[in-house]
């Protein structure tokens, strides 16, 4: 049962990921990507990491909705459903994608996986995974998060033509007070 679910989700994740580049609208591409992430979240839950899997659902739905808003804003006529191609620089991106895929696949085979007795449930799997991923790099990750967030805020601030206090008018008293 677990194996069947794994393959169904794996095929769904890959197929939806391919669809991202096949469909002709930013909205559809975003939702295909969302579907792919949800299938990946299913795989994580299948690994016994139910907290991480559910959090991936929470984060990805939120992020993809926001991404849809931004993508449509930057790339499409927001009032119409203008068809547009999801691919550009085909050769370059194919080369990059192929190299990354090969690298990751080689990594799966080449890495020395930790040898634990099989079929032994790991107590506090989420905690252990977090320690393994983040442990010595917590400070880096925190800094990275803050940097990313401030970059996003700054780009939005630079992109809008009016400032934060524009809506309050020249006297900063607000339009209806």
């Amino acid at each position: 049962m677990g194996t069947i679910t794994f393959f169904v989700l794996a095929v769904a994740a890959s197929a939806l990921a391919v669809l991202v580049f096949v469909v002709d609208s930013m909205a559809r591409a975003t939702f295909c990507l969302l579907g792919s992430f949800l299938a990946a979240a299913g795989e994580v839950i299948l690994l016994g990491l139910s907290y991480l899997g559910t959090v991936i659902v929470v984060m990805m739905v939120m992020e993809m909705v926001i991404m849809a808003v931004f993508m449509v804003m930057y790339m499409m006529n927001p009032a119409g459903l203008m068809p547009m191609s999801m691919v550009h620089n085909r050769r370059g991106s194919l080369a990059i994608a192929g190299a990354v895929f090969a690298g990751l696949a080689v990594g799966i085979v080449a890495i020395r996986w930790p040898t634990t007795p099989r079929r032994r449930p790991v107590p506090r799997a989420t905690f252990e995974l977090g320690k393994a991923l983040m442990g010595p790099h917590m400070l880096t990750m925190v800094l990275l998060g803050v940097t990313l967030f401030s970059t996003m805020v700054v780009t939005v601030m630079l992109a809008v033509s009016h400032g934060r206090y524009d809506r309050l008018g020249d006297d900063l008293k607000g339009p209806d007070r």
């Binding site: 969302l34 559910t54 959090v55 929470v58 739905v61 939120m62 909705v65």
Partner: peptide, 13 residues
């Protein structure tokens, strides 16, 4: 609790 939160956020999408 996280499950409920995830389903609630689905309504945005």
């Amino acid at each position: 609790v996280v499950w409920f939160n995830a389903m609630e956020i689905l309504t945005w999408a």
